[in-house]
Amino acid sequence: MTESLLQLKHLSFAFPDKLVLKDLNYDLKRGEFLSIVGENGVGKTTLMRLILQELKPTSGTLRFIPNRQAVPVGYVPQFRNIDAEYPLSIQDFVGLNFAKIGVPWLTSKERQRVNKILAETKLFDIRRRPLGQASGGEKQKAYLAQSLLDKPSLLILDESTASLDPVAKTELLDLVKQINQEQQLTVIFVTHDIPLARHYADHYLFLTPGQYEAGNISELTNEKVGEMNDA
């Protein structure tokens, strides 16, 4: 677990009217489960967008090892516009991630993979239900299933468990943890839930305005984080 996957060096980012991240350094290792915490608006999602290269650093660098192409990333974003009329079934939605040049329909091997991931995320029984009619928790699981479909090396969960009930939360994170341990999946878990972070993560990155602190997850306490705005 000493091989680096992603190195942030002196990373800073500012929106035109606002400095969000300042001189951030972090060396993310392969197989690490990192929890990112910090109050609303501190820049967690912005950091994820930098990692996804949707945004470019204002200064400093962000480097995937050996390179970005060699590190497939799965991302379960904080927001997604799936309305009640969204027509695709959960199964078809998950299968969207097999996006490459090829026959229009999924091959039997690909369908097997979809079914396997549906079973793992406990969605198999409701796979034919339109995603628009699924509950918030079922939707989150479908997003997770989609992002795991093509076996990413890095999985980013941006408050993906916030709307889940305690049982669903545990189920989802147990699954992620299992893949993390068995297949060395590197996980970045953005959350406001400190006990949850303590239970699953190895390390934490605590963002505060203009500063940050990183360390072993056992050092992350409620006292340190203080009053979090929401749970």
Binding site: P77, F93, L96, A99, I101
Partner: peptide
């Protein structure tokens, strides 16, 4: 036909397609 899978992903889940 050739770009079908890309078109499908981008049309039915632009957020996912962007991430990909």
């Amino acid at each position: 036909m050739v770009i079908y899978r890309y078109l499908k992903f981008d049309s039915f889940d632009p957020v996912g397609a962007q991430v990909k």
